[in-house]
Amino acid sequence: MAASGGEVADDPILDAVVAVAASAKVTVTTAGPVQVVVEVGREDYPALVEAARAGGFETFIDLCAVDHLAREPRFDVVVNLLSTQHTRRLLIKVGVPNEDPSLPSISMVYPGANFYERETWDMFGIVFDGHPDLTRLLMPDEWDGHPLRKDYRIGSVPVEFKATR
């Protein structure tokens, strides 16, 4: 999305959403103005999500995290919302530091975020404060570690052939 960059000029739908968050930074993606990325600080994140829902982005599409490892903040959580009435997408990106990997849960705003937040907790160890049931989703409950973190080994087993034994 950084590929084309650029500012969005005069976008009433988006302006109404972004107005609630002082820290919001808007960029357009290679897909054009139908797919807009808003980077936002942690403090403004819940307000922005609520404003997005009120502003017409009624469909919850996706929530995932990216582990940048060496970068500060280490994680990005990316929320993907869709407005079917305006036929456009909104990607909300919020940085999460390694020292305190937590974010307010948005599963009360979008119930669909429930499983996605559980998956993100499971895979990245990001805690979603206020989530009703933040347990492991994909891995067994007693699993140790968060597999999709970059410092978690892929866990491959060396391949052995009978002839070499």
């Binding site: 891995m139 597999p147 978690y152 080994r153 892929i154 866990g155 491959s156 087993v157 391949v159």
Partner: peptide, 13 residues
């Protein structure tokens, strides 16, 4: 039989 192409943490090899 072997874990196939997914030689990773999630699968029994």
């Amino acid at each position: 039989s072997t874990g196939g192409m997914f030689n990773n943490y999630a699968l029994v090899q």
